[in-house]
Design a protein around this nucleic acid. Structure first.
Length: 577
RNA sequence: GCCAAAAUAGCUCAGCGGUAGAGCAACGCACUCGUAAUGCGUAGGUCGUGGGUUCAAUUCCCACUUUUGGCUCCA
């Protein structure tokens, strides 16, 4: 969506108009902040009572009235004391005024009866706002300045555009997003479920969803073996000793499920796989000749996520990371980073994600590891990004305390960004677990350890993929690749024959032999978003062909069964969409 | 965790102080049919859980659970 200066002015101005309308209704309301945001605006209020949906209608009407009056937005620069006097009843505004740096002007904007502390800019007059091109969307709670310890304010979100037409397009876009919601598609296509009574945030994979997941996993394992990784598997629980040593009980305890007691020892379900992989490493002594190790595991971990943040497959409490740890010598580190980034991009592109952006996070204030290690690690991350020609942003000080990292975000079919890949250095665990290798000079040295997940978690990745394809998976991922539909009962045996042939070739197909009419069978297959419908009747049976109907609606008749099988095999191999 | 809203059949939803209703799906029967729904019938619900108010609660009130939208966009 375009986001030019005019739109920003419009949105910010509409938010002021909304604040004026809210103050008309609730003269005692405290107003906080009301910026423009992507696609719209919000304003935070401290109100005498909670808002109802109907209130939004009244606010909307009042806003339209204000816009019709056509009052100018007037800017004025005032002194601090004037500002404080002006907003003496507005505690949040007073706090904001005090936070303005000394060398900055304090400006106010007035339209009609409403004056707000504001940096601007705004449109010149409320006349320039189109009374039919905005919509108040939702009411939400938001902490003052986003801090949990601060009071909870009432936030009204809205969207605003130059013209009613643009508003309609945007609302349509929101509908598209809703239609693609992976939770909805997951239910409609019978892919997965969640069960509140059996535990929130825990995913149940149904047969069809599992088919897709296994297609992803099979490709993932194969790609990892081809790219120099080995597979390991580790337990789901570990004794407190492990988590004490790793530091998780000190730093991550609130993210872990509470302990289980057995034989007088505390066992914790794993929130991460790393300590286990280190146990494997520390099982024996290692020479520099053996490094690097690249150990991968589809490791299922459990983390306590706050109840309010759970969201379908995208935020869950139990998930399977496509995890791997690279353990290498300092000399190998640069090449390993470059390689892992290259491999990440290959994986993401294989799934149809072409727009990829990198985010580099560097050393935060509190951190472990030497300055030298941080610098060399961050620099090799940066060089790897640049060599791959990725656009990137740097988040200074945004790294974890244990090391710098690269995150990769992809853009999906609707232009939304999702973080999938993370590549993180870890200077903490090698130290805590006393990991060593014997170098050329016969001395024990500490290896570098890199933690990486390319798809992130299978659950989240599956959710993103589902929305990206709107449920219409490409043939190589589709749970059912082709549905064989006889035009009438007499051709059921040929339909079964076709299904047997294709099943024997390793394809995922089903013959629809129910007593529905053909039209209904096509409709069902269409709604299940199956890539191919093979329609068979007298003609097809006679010359061993199939009529191939694609879910796009286009069709090719009289395709030899063998030719179809070859085409499908090729599409699966090439991962064609 | 916090704010707000919601929870009725497998799904989508209606109802609302007098012990529940539709469409789709499911199941049964009939129908021999060439590109997005053949017709008829049957079954399915302690109205999220617990408590309260009431002669009577799915409906009103309270608590809990879960779900949804937010809690990062800085005057």
């Amino acid at each position: 969506m375009a986001n030019n200066e005019l739109l920003e002015k419009i949105r910010h101005s509409v938010s002021h108009v909304m604040a004026e309308a809210v103050l008309q209704m609730f003269p005692s309301a405290q107003i906080a902040i009301g910026p423009s945001i992507d696609n719209g605006f919000y304003y935070d209020f401290d109100l005498p009572r909670p808002l109802k949906q109907e209130d939004l209608e009244e606010i909307t009407e009042r806003m339209r009235d204000i816009m019709r009056e056509g009052k100018p937005f007037e800017r004025a620069v005032v002194s601090r004391s004037e500002a404080e006097k002006l907003f003496r009843d507005q505690t949040y505004k007073l706090e904001l005024i005090r936070a303005i740096p000394e060398d900055e002007d304090v400006s106010i904007y007035t339209q009609g009866a409403f004056t707000d502390l504001c940096r601007g800019p705004h449109v010149e007059s409320t006349k320039q706002l189109n009374a039919q091109a905005f919509k108040l969307l939702s009411i939400a709670g938001a902490y003052w300045r986003g801090k949990e310890t601060n009071p909870m304010l009432t936030r009204i979100y809205g969207t605003a555009w130059e013209s009613p037409k643009e508003l309609r397009l945007y609302l349509k876009h929101l509908e598209d997003i809703e239609k693609r919601d992976h939770r909805k598609l997951g239910r409609e296509l019978d892919l997965f479920s969640l069960h509140e009574e059996a535990g929130p945030g825990l995913v149940y994979w149904h047969p069809k969803g599992m088919r897709v997941r296994l297609a992803i996993e099979d490709f993932w394992r194969d790609a990892h073996y081809r790219n120099g990784y080995d597979m390991v598997a580790s337990p789901h629980v570990g004794k407190a000793w492990l988590w004490d040593t790793s530091g998780h009980l000190d730093f991550y305890k609130e993210g872990m499920y509470p302990p289980m007691v057995m034989d007088k020892a505390d066992y914790y379900v794993k929130p991460m796989n790393c300590p286990f992989h280190i146990m494997i490493y520390n099982n024996t002594k290692h020479s520099y000749r053996e490094l690097p190790y690249r150990w991968a595991e589809l490791g299922t971990v459990y983390r306590y996520e706050k109840a309010g943040v759970l969201h379908g497959l995208l935020r869950v409490r139990g998930f399977t990371q496509d995890d791997a740890h690279i353990i290498c010598t300092p000399e190998q580190m640069e090449d390993e980073i470059l390689e892992v980034l290259r491999f990440s991009l290959y994986m993401l592109r294989s799934f149809g994600f072409e727009e990829i952006k990198a985010y580099l996070s560097t050393r935060p204030e509190e951190s472990v590891g030497t300055e030298e290690k941080w610098t060399s690690a961050a620099e090799s991350l940066r060089r790897a990004i640049e060599r791959e020609g990725l656009s990137y942003e740097v988040d200074e000080g945004g790294g974890a305390f244990y090391g710098p990292k690269i995150d990769l975000k992809i853009k999906d079919a609707l232009g939304r960004e999702w973080q999938l890949t993370t590549i993180q250095f870890d200077f903490n665990l090698p130290e805590r677990f006393n990991m060593v290798f014997v170098d050329k000079d016969g001395k024990e040295k500490q290896p570098y350890m890199v933690h990486r997940a390319l798809l992130g978690s299978l659950e989240r990745f599956f959710g993103v993929l589902l929305e990206h394809y709107a449920g219409a998976f490409p043939p190589w991922l589709a749970p059912e690749q082709a549905r064989i539909i006889p035009v009438a009962a007499p051709f059921e045996s040929y339909a079964r024959d076709v299904a047997d042939v294709l099943t024997a070739r390793g394809f995922r197909v089903k013959a629809d032999l129910g007593d529905d009419r053909m039209n209904a069978k096509i409709r069902n297959a269409q709604q299940e978003k199956i890539p191919y419908m093979l329609i068979v009747g007298e003609r097809e049976e006679a010359d061993r062909t199939v009529a191939v109907r694609m879910r796009s609606g286009t069709q090719e008749n009289g395709i030899a069964l063998e030719a179809f099988a070859q085409m499908l095999a090729e599409q699966v191999e090439q991962k064609t969409r």
